[in-house]
Design a protein around this nucleic acid. Structure first.
Length: 421
RNA sequence: GGAGACGUCGCCUAGUCCGGUCUAUGGCGCCGCACUGCUAAUGCGGUUUGGGUUUAUCGCCCAUCGAGGGUUCAAAUCCCUCCGUCUCCGCCA
């Protein structure tokens, strides 16, 4: 949720942001009007309520006829107070519904436009050249006895899979390497709930626009999370944090669940796009002034991880229209996938500034004055199951074996993965 | 799953039975000031959060006693639903 004060004081900034995202800017004026309505109805309610309270005190002390007269007056006021309160509540709900439709204010420098309008920031590493026909990650995974899609489909349906033997070990090694790096940089490792309540899901911003993407357990009114970001965003909900000693950094380890609605027919082969996978995710709470710098740090830690698996990749600055609602800016790192001849997303880091925190009511003492203010939240990927695709394909050899990147070897306990006969 | 106890503004706590001087008590902690070689101790004052009004402050007002409803002129207090914590019993990885 954006700051209503910002919208009031600088509506043009919000309009510009909406335009960059390709979204309705007329809503700004609707919100301004709704706020006026809310404020006047609230004032009206409060004034009569004050009168009701002071009369109530007289009632308590009065006796006999005087008391009866007061009761008659106060009964009438009571009914009006109730009505005014209902009006004020309605006005507030209307305002809330409107303002929640606005995405975060896009950071300066973010390219305008949709999915294809990203800015290429950097390309790292050499695209490998094979003197043999490279096999895709699933062919490799099957011959290594690492991935079993067929039985995955038998048990869970399409887009489910088993990681078997070295496949399971490779995933654990990758995730453990992510946790190890996070710990090395001062993150607190966290294993998070993957089922969360509706208000946490909504607070993290995953219901409004990604509603179709999310699994919901009807019987319990719980949501399966698509990333530990959700649980970590909820972790400090309704709290006042002390960030005077620096940001709070968490590394969440969790299973992730995505419905992949609307992506029928896309990436149907292998484990690129699946309903369930694992991820180690960085999550930071920091002061809003530090958020942009922290975003660069998160990107730096993603690059550090990508260097460890020795695959070529590029970094893009996602266009405004491709940002999630809570994000003010997003950098994706995309690894080269040889058999597809293109780059595929391995990491994504978003600066959500105060957007999530405002919804989840996570604040700090205002260092510049009195009272409290919303903190900033950021997130970024350290490792996911999908990384196996890039590792397998980029490090494959003519005989079907796969060389394990050096940094990963101590975690995996193997230097080479060899095909099973 | 069954039975019971509980949830008060950082922490602890009074108030709830019997609705109205509760504008929520007291202690601890914390902040400020005073006194004082320093620290400590002591004294005085302040200390939930959100919002409205004003906006240069002061001030005034509303909401907030786990959450949401209800009863009532009036709810921390009475009723209902939900959430959470603890104890015991049962069942089960």
């Amino acid at each position: 949720m954006i700051d209503i004060k910002l919208l009031r004081e600088d509506p043009d900034r919000v309009r510009t942001s909406q335009r960059a995202r390709g979204e309705d800017e007329g809503i700004v004026d609707a919100i301004l009007a709704a706020e006026q309505t809310h404020r006047s109805s609230l004032t009206e309610f409060e004034q009569l309520r004050a009168q009701q309270k002071s009369l109530g005190k007289q009632v308590a002390q009065a006796q006999g006829d005087e008391k009866q007269a007061l009761l008659a007056r106060t009964k009438e006021i009571s009914a009006r107070v109730k009505q005014l309160q209902a009006d004020a509540d309605t006005a507030q709900a209307t305002l809330g519904d409107l303002i929640r439709q606005i995405g975060n204010i896009v950071e300066d420098g973010v390219p305008v436009g949709g999915e294809d309008d990203y800015t290429l920031l950097e390309t790292v590493g050499e695209i490998p050249e094979f003197d043999f026909e490279p096999r895709d990650h699933l062919a490799l995974g099957e011959s290594l006895a690492a991935i079993d899609m067929e039985r995955g489909a038998k048990v869970g349906g399409s887009r489910f899979y088993f990681l078997t033997g070295v496949g399971a070990r490779l995933e654990l090694a990758l995730l453990n390497m992510g946790i190890a790096q996070a710990v090395e940089h001062g993150f607190t490792p966290m294993i998070t709930p993957t089922l969360v309540k509706a208000d946490v899901m909504a607070g993290a911003g995953f219901i409004d626009k990604h509603g179709d993407e999310v699994y919901r357990l009807e019987a319990d009114d719980l949501y399966l999370t698509g990333t530990s970001e959700v649980a970590l965003a909820g972790y400090h909900a309704d709290e006042i944090l002390d960030l005077s000693a620096g940001p709070k950094r968490y590394a969440g380890w969790s299973a992730c669940y995505r419905r992949e609605a609307g992506s029928h027919g896309k990436d149907t082969r292998g484990i690129i796009r699946v309903h369930q996978f694992h991820k180690v995710e960085m999550f930071t709470y920091c002061r809003v002034e530090d958020a942009a710098a922290e975003h660069q740090r998160l990107l730096g830690w993603e690059k550090e991880m990508l260097a460890k698996i020795e695959v070529p990749y590029r970094i893009i600055d996602t266009a405004a229209g491709d940002l999630g609602g809570p994000a003010a800016r997003k950098f994706d790192c995309e690894a080269w996938v040889p058999t597809q001849g293109r780059y595929r997303e391995l990491t994504s880091t978003s600066n959500c500034t105060t957007y999530q925190a405002r919804r989840l009511n996570t604040r700090e003492r205002d260092p510049n004055g009195q009272g409290t203010r919303a903190v900033a939240t950021l997130n970024g990927t350290l490792a996911t199951t999908r990384w196996m695709v890039a590792i397998l394909e980029n490090h494959q050899q003519a005989d079907g074996s796969v060389v394990v990147p050096k940094a990963l070897q101590p975690f995996l306990g193997l230097e080479v993965l060899r095909p099973v006969a």
